[in-house]
Amino acid sequence: MQYLISVIDDEQTIVAGNDSAVQAEMSAVDAFNDRLKAQGHWVFAEGLAAPNTATVIDNRGGASVITDGPFLESKEFLGGLWIIEAPDLDMAIKLAAEGSRVCNRKVEVRPFHVSEK
């Protein structure tokens, strides 16, 4: 079963980090990713560019409408994500808690639909 781990950012976590803190955080994240891979949990992981780089596209009516900015404006926003493979929520939570620690942010765990294949 796959789970999406969303890394939750806010303006403060962005501003607070100085260079050496960011460096330490990144190497902790790298080490964590290596472990996810070694244990067979890793599917995908990536940091995201700031929300103001987002574009919304609505092509439901046939006439495509393009809007600048994220679909939700909020103080907290998605800063990056992991996609992991885990047998159940207990394992997903354990990995997410480690993820929260290494990247020093809150995270949200949400399951993908049970794969039908």
């Binding site: 079963m1 047998p87 159940d88 207990d90 765990v109 049970v114």
Partner: peptide, 10 residues
């Protein structure tokens, strides 16, 4: 169900 909270003793 959806998040697959396991039915087991931890």
């Amino acid at each position: 169900k959806a998040a697959r909270i396991p039915y087991r003793v931890p």
